[in-house]
């Protein structure tokens, strides 16, 4: 049960982290004219951060077993 509650709290923390990552001001930091492999930094950032967030959620949920 403790483990179960801990997972819930970790997911809540990830939700808050996501809110931080995908909003002002963090988003503004990546709003740059440069490109990464030809992709504008902002676009690349959003998709990478999104993928990492999903990965972290999967990790929290799946490692319980």
């Amino acid at each position: 049960m403790g483990d179960f509650e801990k997972s819930g709290q970790r997911l809540i923390a990830l939700c808050l982290l996501g809110f931080l990552l995908f909003n002002y001001p963090v988003l503004a930091l990546f709003n740059l004219p440069q490109t990464v492999f030809g992709i504008p930094v902002l676009y690349a950032y959003i998709f990478c951060a999104w993928a990492l967030l999903i990965g972290a959620m999967a990790w929290v949920v799946e490692k319980r077993r």
């Binding site: 997972s7 819930g8 997911l11 990830l14 939700c15 996501g18 809110f19 676009y43 959003i46 999104w50």
Partner: peptide
Amino acid sequence: DGVGFLPIYIGPTLMIALWWV
């Protein structure tokens, strides 16, 4: 307007993390 459509999909990603509770 570029990435303006993305919150519609990022929002649910954040919300679903709270689904556990």
